[in-house]
């Protein structure tokens, strides 16, 4: 797994790629905790993913909940749709976030194409 963090104004951007499986999720968890403590907005930019598993989506969901409870933003961008289309994520077919998703930026909802 590759994790690169950068701070742009009041936003922390975390770029992730490679092997995004259970073995590396603890590291990402601690990076996310730090980021949400220090920034009002955190963005995860998904790069080229080799492998991923459920722990990653779970962590996204958890980070999103944590951000909303602190009235902060948490967005997943980049190759998010490709990630959510992976075979291992059967069942993550939601088109709308949960009840607390007031910014409509649920990490588990695919980004709409304007085409």
């Amino acid at each position: 797994m590759s994790i690169e963090t950068s701070v742009e104004e009041d936003k922390t951007v975390i770029e992730i790629s490679g092997d995004l499986t259970v073995g590396y999720v603890i590291e990402l968890h601690s990076v996310l905790r730090e980021a949400l403590q220090s920034s009002d907005s955190v963005e995860i930019k998904v790069g080229d993913v080799e492998r991923a598993d459920l722990t990653l989506l779970q962590l996204f969901c958890s980070a999103h909940r944590a951000a909303l409870s602190k009235d902060k933003r948490f967005d997943v961008t980049g190759k998010k749709n490709e990630l959510l289309c992976m075979d291992c994520f059967t069942g993550f077919t939601r088109v709308k976030g949960c009840v607390i998703d007031r910014y409509n930026n649920c990490a588990l909802v695919k980004e709409r194409s304007d085409v």
Binding site: I26, H29, R65, T90
Partner: peptide, 17 residues
Amino acid sequence: VVAHTADVPELNEIQPE
């Protein structure tokens, strides 16, 4: 298949694995 995420806790409470 429908995945349920209602039980996912916040970042400070989650055990990532």
